[in-house]
């Protein structure tokens, strides 16, 4: 294991195969999958305090696969993944969260969503003031707070 990957080689392969099923690449939307080299490297680096949950989830996945999930035929992988999604519980939720956290901050993915790949600060965003006349019916209402003795 190295600093950027707390998982074993077998766990890493299974996670990559699972990530490809969670969020596959799409030609329609022009986006990579979650198993893309850059995104997957980010996922491994970002497990941090979710590492124990990730490993627990991957251990369950391997048990359900009867060995290496990554080495199963594609059809069987899909079947196992569907069952794993139902049964994975909190550890899978944590693992899935890390995958999503890394996928949706990838520059290519953000651009495909019409987002600028930048932090919120310092430029912020525009929010329209809106039509304040909508409030007129409420302005016309008599005070209705309950009087206290």
């Amino acid at each position: 294991m190295d600093r950027d990957n707390p998982l074993t080689e077998a766990e890493t392969r299974d996670l990559r195969a699972l990530a490809a099923l969670m969020i596959p690449a799409s030609d329609v939307y022009g986006v990579p999958g979650a198993d893309d080299d850059l995104i997957f490297a980010d996922i491994l680096r970002s497990l941090e305090r979710d590492t124990a949950d990730a490993r627990a989830a991957l251990a369950l996945l391997a048990r359900m696969a009867g060995g290496s999930f990554a080495d199963l035929p594609a059809g069987r992988r899909a079947e196992i993944a569907a069952a794993f999604k139902r049964e994975g519980g909190a550890p899978l939720f944590a693992l899935n969260r890390v995958v999503l956290l890394c996928y949706y901050r990838d520059d290519r993915v953000m651009r495909s969503l019409g987002q600028e790949p930048r932090p919120p600060f310092p430029r912020g965003h525009e929010v329209e003031q809106g039509d304040w006349s909508l409030l007129d019916p409420v302005r016309g209402r008599a005070p209705f707070y309950r009087r206290a003795p």
């Binding site: 329209e128 003031q129 809106g130 039509d131 909508l134 409030l135 019916p137 409420v138």
Partner: peptide, 15 residues
């Protein structure tokens, strides 16, 4: 704070 799109949609619903 500005109403924004969300606030206007809620305001219309409440009215």
């Amino acid at each position: 704070l500005p109403l924004g799109k969300s606030g206007q949609r809620f305001g219309r619903a409440m009215n």
